[in-house]
């Protein structure tokens, strides 16, 4: 890893939902361009951790710093703005708008940041080509396969040129062959664009694509991170 300060840092993160302690003091950091897998059993707190790091949830205590700036204390509007421009998201299900053709789904983040429709659609078309989806741009999400849907989701996550991609079980609904294709694409495009990624998964085969893996158990990091290339 490089010597620079990490791009994204979570320190002492705690988060409860009613009586349930989801996070009990998590420290975690991500270097620029690094792909980190967060593993753990169901209910371990790994998705909550992703949501806190991505500024979707506010931790009860602790802090999240992105590019040297506290983001857990930002007002909602600024956090939304940050999520749109600096972060990309890939989830397991239900992320494409069913009524919109694939190309418009991919263009959505650009449209939300105020880009002209023509420019946004052209960029989306570029991404479609790049991810091997060139001929399905006009189809609706319900008319394409699960693997194609996840590839479209990756295109949408990357279209704004994010610094960090947050992926929560991105292959959860796919068979192993489609899962491998999606993961290779996700890693290749992240590396090609210089984006880092936080990848939440309970599947070791998916986590094995990451540069580094940590395991969350009972709201804490269960093991020291293994660093790529460390011996």
């Amino acid at each position: 890893m490089n010597e620079q300060a990490p791009l994204l840092i979570g320190r002492g993160l705690h988060k409860s939902f009613g009586p349930t302690l989801a996070l009990r003091g998590v420290d975690l950091s991500l270097a620029a361009g690094e792909v980190l897998a967060v593993m753990g059993p169901s209910g371990s707190g790994k998705s909550t951790l992703l949501h806190c790091l991505a500024g979707i949830l506010t931790p009860d205590s602790g802090e999240v710093t992105f590019a040297g700036r506290r983001i857990d204390q930002l007002p909602d509007r600024q956090r939304s703005q940050l999520r749109r421009t600096a972060f990309g998201f890939v989830f397991q299900f239900g992320q494409l708008v069913p009524e919109l053709p694939v190309v418009e789904n991919i263009a959505l983040p650009l449209l939300l940041t105020g880009k002209k429709r023509r420019v946004a659609l052209a960029a989306a078309q570029d991404w479609l080509q790049r991810l091997g989806l060139g001929d399905i741009g006009q189809r609706l999400p319900g008319e394409i396969s699960g693997g194609q849907m996840q590839r479209a989701a990756i295109a949408r996550a990357l279209i704004c040129g994010p610094s960090v991609i947050f992926a929560d079980e991105p292959t959860g609904s796919l068979d192993s062959v489609a899962a491998d294709e999606v993961m290779e694409l996700l890693i290749d495009t992240a590396k090609a664009t210089g984006a880092g990624a936080v990848l939440v998964t309970h599947e070791p085969r998916v986590a094995a694509y990451a540069d580094r893996q940590v395991t969350v158990r009972d709201g804490r990091i269960a093991q020291p991170a293994t660093v790529l290339g460390a011996s």
């Binding site: 986590a207 094995a208 893996q213």
Partner: peptide
Amino acid sequence: LDAQRGVHLTAMRELTTARR
């Protein structure tokens, strides 16, 4: 078990890299 998990994950990561 944590140590064993670490070694297994490292092996998987190396194999995944080799497979690509």
